[in-house]
């Protein structure tokens, strides 16, 4: 749709893909945008491929269908590259972001001939090193904000601090850890 930024997320059940899409809707909402954030539910089990979507616009969003021609795609689990057509319908003026230790040049040949921009981030590693566990969704969220230029880093970080303080009111340590993840992720997107 013209004037509407459309993002598709691919991941696996348990990786926080839905949460990432809803948080992206949150941060866009805080900057005064019209937003949609919604998951596509398949078999409800850990590890099953899941898809989530965002629409972000200055105008009212009327449409209620999944997104088939996204401007951007975020792949939270790189094992999906061989089983799901993650770049299907993706605009060549847009970009695809993959969570991987590989470089964009190494990932590009795995994307079914996609000719647009390819970005990578090692979200698993960042999460392991900062939080001690693999929660790839927060690094991916920061990287998607950077990829789409949706809002300036400073505004994003301020909004996220408010959201995280609210979400982890009883676990203040989680706020600092996640903020560190977000800050670091902004600097570690490859291929820009």
């Amino acid at each position: 749709m013209e004037g509407v930024l459309e993002i598709r997320w691919h991941g696996r059940g348990g990786q926080g893909v839905k949460t990432a899409a809803l948080l992206l809707a949150d941060v866009a909402f805080f900057t005064g945008k019209q937003v949609q954030g919604f998951p596509e539910y398949g078999p409800e089990r850990m590890g099953a491929p899941v898809t989530a979507y965002n629409r972000i616009s200055d105008e009212e969003i009327l449409i209620h269908s999944n997104i088939y021609e996204p401007d951007y795609v975020a792949v939270v689990d790189e094992s999906l590259l061989s089983t799901v057509a993650v770049t299907g319908g993706l605009s060549e003026k847009g970009a695809v972001l993959v969570n991987t230790a590989k470089s964009p040049a190494q990932v590009a040949p795995l994307l079914n001939g996609y000719k647009g921009q390819v970005l990578t981030i090692d979200a698993g590693k960042i999460s392991e090193e900062v939080l001690g566990a693999n929660f790839p969704n927060m690094p991916m969220l920061a990287a998607v904000v950077k990829m789409t230029n949706l809002l300036p880093e400073k505004v994003f970080m301020e909004n996220m601090e408010d959201s995280l303080k609210h979400k982890f009111a009883t676990k203040p340590k989680m706020v600092e850890g996640n903020m560190q993840v977000l800050r670091r992720s902004f600097g570690e997107v490859q291929g820009l």
């Binding site: 809803l22 809707a25 949150d26 909402f29 019209q34 937003v35 949609q36 954030g37 919604f38 998951p39 539910y41 009212e60 969003i61 209620h64």
Partner: peptide
């Protein structure tokens, strides 16, 4: 309301 389509979609 429509299940998932509006029940689980975050909107303004």
């Amino acid at each position: 309301q429509d299940g998932f389509i509006t029940s689980h979609a975050v909107e303004n």
